[in-house]
Amino acid sequence: MGIYDFTVKTNRGVEKSLADYKDKVLLIVNTASKCGFTPQFEGLQKLYDAYKDKGLEILGFPCNQFAAQDPGSNEEIQTFCKLNYGVKFQIFEKGDVRGENAQPLFKYLVAQKKFTGFDESSPMTPILMDALQKNFPEYLKGDDIKWNFTKFLIDRKGNVVARFEPMITPESIAKDIEALL
């Protein structure tokens, strides 16, 4: 079983085989709410703009399993949501990315690249650890996805070569992508 054996559905319900992405470098990301404070979308779109022509594809999988934030909490700032978060790369159907009902693709990804801890130097790490311990202590165990914006990098042959935890920004993995292009 390899990455190209999986079939997923786009956000418009169209079936898509990952075999269609053979010979591309892939960044697979579990994304968050369409409405909240989701700054990594901008960074991901920048990566896509910079490397799309060289063979990068970004695949976003929305998931509500980490919805600790009330969508209403940004009320003063914005009162709208945005289709596909305003990004141009492919967004897929919403689904679970961890636990028993996780999409098979994500079960495969976490088996290929296990959880090796968070980046201790990131200012986001203590905040995320606190949120996890308070709301989802069981999420800290095992290799499953810990939070929104976990990123898996796949080379042109379909090998899962890296896993980046949520606090690793899109900007900071540009060099890892470049190395595969």
């Binding site: 369409k34 209403g72 709208f80 949501c81």
Partner: peptide
């Protein structure tokens, strides 16, 4: 609107 859009629902 879009699905899963609290502002659309409001």
């Amino acid at each position: 609107s879009i699905t899963q859009c609290p502002w659309c629902d409001k």
